[in-house]
Simulated assay, not measured.
Amino acid sequence: MCLLLIAYRQHPKFPLLLLANRDEFYARPTEPAHPWPNSPITAGRDLQAGGTWLGITPGGRVAAVTNIREPQVPEPEGALSRGEIPVRFLEGEESPAAFAKGLAGQRYRGFNALLFDARLLAGGAAASLVCAGNRHQPFAITAGVHGISNGAPDAPWPKVTHGCRALAELAATLPDSLGQDNFVTPALKLLADHRRAATEQLPDTGVGEALESALSPIFVRITADDAMPDSPLSAGYGTRLSSLVAVDADGGAQFWEQGYTDGLVSGPPQYFQLPAG
């Protein structure tokens, strides 16, 4: 998952609105979102490593993960898959803060993990939304609109700043009932923005200006011209899925997922509705 846009406590009925794009190699085997057998999780599944990038459960637990782009940093010995982090949180009962504190961050390559539990919204004693990671200390996310891509949370990358601005405008217009016209279509349009950032706005993560530019849109589609011939990205890389999550104050959750094949829309969005806890 390479972009998370979060509207937290910005709507009177839906304290969490989450828009996300998963960027991945086109050839990496993946199952679309579905209820997992013998598990409370509804999510897509990475068939190569077995985990997920974003998932939800009944009662309003939500988890997502992004990697951190740091090509010069070596992989830790015996590295674990970052996709297991959402799975472990969603199948457990720990609060976001407790789970984040217990993560063995040194066993993973760089990551940010978003952890939410709607059951903590009313109590006020514990944070309901936490950002964990192994390049920063875990912290509670404050009310507002936030973005996480492949750097530090809320880093002012163009896709983050543009996405947050657009999500704030969308959240301000939403009624108490979400549907295709008032939420799904405009949210997916936001996530389909393929405009590249100006050169002077690009971050420098060590991959070179051409690739920084190709990775700069909200919706990524890498061509052979964007990557070095010997780079695995030249075989096809980009946004594979767009996901929308809305959790109400009682913990009821709605989840839409739009798939793409080689950067093009593949069928209608899937829709799941999970009950409150």
Rank of each mutant, 00 (worst) to 15 (best):
A7N: 08
Y8M: 04
Y8P: 04
H11G: 07
N21F: 06
D23I: 05
F25T: 04
A33F: 04
H34F: 12
T42R: 05
A43N: 11
R45C: 01
T52G: 00
W53Q: 13
G55K: 13
V65R: 02
N67A: 03
N67V: 11
I68D: 02
E70K: 15
P71C: 11
E75L: 15
P76K: 09
R82W: 03
G83S: 07
I85K: 13
L90R: 01
E91K: 15
G92M: 12
E94K: 14
E94I: 07
S95T: 15
P96G: 04
K101E: 10
K101P: 00
Q106N: 13
Y108A: 01
Y108K: 06
G110A: 09
G110R: 11
A118M: 11
G124D: 02
A125V: 10
A127Q: 10
V130D: 03
C131G: 03
H136N: 08
F139I: 10
I141Y: 01
A143D: 15
H146T: 05
I148R: 06
I148E: 03
S149P: 05
P158W: 05
T161Y: 07
R165H: 11
A166E: 07
L167I: 15
E169D: 10
L170E: 09
D176Y: 04
S177A: 14
S177N: 09
L178A: 15
L178C: 07
G179K: 06
F183Q: 11
V184C: 03
A187V: 01
K189D: 12
L191D: 08
H194P: 03
T199F: 12
E200C: 06
Q201K: 07
P203E: 00
G208D: 03
L211D: 05
S216R: 12
F219R: 03
T223V: 01
D225N: 13
P232K: 02
L233Y: 13
R240I: 04
L244N: 06
G251T: 07
G252T: 04
Q254V: 14
Q254C: 06
Q258P: 04
G259Y: 05
T261E: 06
T261F: 04
V265Q: 10
Q270W: 01
Q273D: 00
